[in-house]
Design a protein around this nucleic acid. Structure first.
Lengths: 222, 222
DNA sequence: AAGAGTTTCTGTACATGTAAGAAAAGTTAG
DNA sequence: CTAACTTTTCTTACATGTACAGAAACTCTT
């Protein structure tokens, strides 16, 4: 594992490519042609190197994607002015993260990553935890609350993005319709009742609603 | 796309393998050696066929995994006796799904799938939607509520499983510690305060707590 | 200057998912 | 029986991520 920033100045063969260059190029490729265009070989070619040389600056492709997400977050996550009221602060902070992530759909493959994303996102985490504390939760419950919010947020993005990808697929969309058409009304009355409205209902963006409900619920358990 | 069950009885070359056989064998491989052992080549070999022959019974590996999950759900999802009170019913139904899914960690790759999983899970969806309606929500809000619960549930499993996978990795664990050690206490006071407790706190299983909070919040917005 | 040590890069090789097309094994029409 | 047709299977081939082994390009020591 080469250190991201080696302590010594120059020792050994001098590098011809840098992690920054790799990330910048990867970003360009993704911006131009989507994450599907990003292969280690193509990236190496564009950087003017060989595939395996990349592996001295990046552990594997997954880490590259995480770095790409970090980079994206650092560049686009602007700190909004937050309301004074702690509950509102939580909602606004979480929504800001959600919006930023939802705007770049290729992250789904990385999103499954971890609880706290890049360093640039820490401020938002802080705001959420602090907001929960400000509403009267003890610190440990606030951390748990933040995690619940993160689960909800990550889940929403992952599920929604993947669903959108599938909806583009005729066969699978047809399969879903079939499931709803074949419902047994006596055993599944509510689903039958909602069957024809299901598609539009699930297409609605209800992230904020659910978030507020979750926050309310978390605060009510004080 | 070959139909899962062709209308005509016999026409063309008779199949030597069936989708069921494929799924059963895949299940065995996964049970024995984890999902990492499941490759199309190995599966073909164990079935006594060639890799490409599988593709006449299964669209691609992802579909195979979805089918595997369906199969798993159909075999292990037992319907628990649900409480009468609708709110409790929601919590118990969701927890049952969550437990079943959390018990088979390989699904993460599929979980990102869709809102409703296999047919066997529909009953649970019904219970949740019906519980929400029983608590006074109109049907469309109940569907939205169910989706929020599903986002939370899927997110919890995906994030937690991936986090566990990474925790096995020393480098990444160290990196995380580093992030917490380097916090600026003046800018991120809460995180600093929680820094040393973060690892144990996030290791706790708080699914149920968060779920109840979410349900409470959903019901409070009646 | 020669060697040792260190880091980066290159070349080759393998496992994987799967696309494309040919071949095989039936059924049915003539 | 032969030819056409259909469905399944097999063969071959390619793109991809990445392991491994060494070569290359430096600095530091002697």
């Amino acid at each position: 594992m080469p250190q991201p920033s080696a302590p010594r100045k120059t020792l050994g063969r001098p590098p011809r490519i840098s992690r920054e260059e790799i990330i910048a190029t990867a970003r360009r490729i993704v911006d131009e042609g989507g994450v599907g265009r990003l292969t280690m070989r193509r990236l190496a070619a564009e950087v003017g190197s060989t595939p395996m040389a990349l592996y001295h600056h990046v552990r594997d492709k997954e880490e590259l994607l995480v770095l790409l997400l970090d980079d994206y977050a650092a560049r686009t996550l602007r700190r909004p002015r937050l309301p004074d009221h702690p509950r509102e602060r939580i909602v606004v902070a979480a929504t800001a993260i959600h919006e930023a992530l939802a705007a770049c759909p290729w992250i789904v493959e990385v999103l499954t990553a971890d609880d706290l994303l890049s360093t640039s996102a820490l401020w938002f985490v802080e705001q959420i935890v602090d907001g929960l504390v400000g509403c009267g939760l003890p610190l440990d419950r606030a951390v748990h609350g933040y995690r619940a919010i993160w689960y909800y947020t990550a889940g929403e993005i992952v599920v929604r993005t993947t669903a959108a990808r599938r909806r583009a697929d005729d066969d699978r969309a047809t399969y879903r319709e079939q499931v709803f058409a074949d419902l047994d009304p006596s055993e599944l009355p509510r689903l039958t009742q909602a069957a024809d409205r299901w598609a539009p209902l699930t297409a609605e963006d209800t992230y904020r609603d659910g978030l507020q409900a979750l926050v309310d619920g978390l605060l009510a358990r004080r």
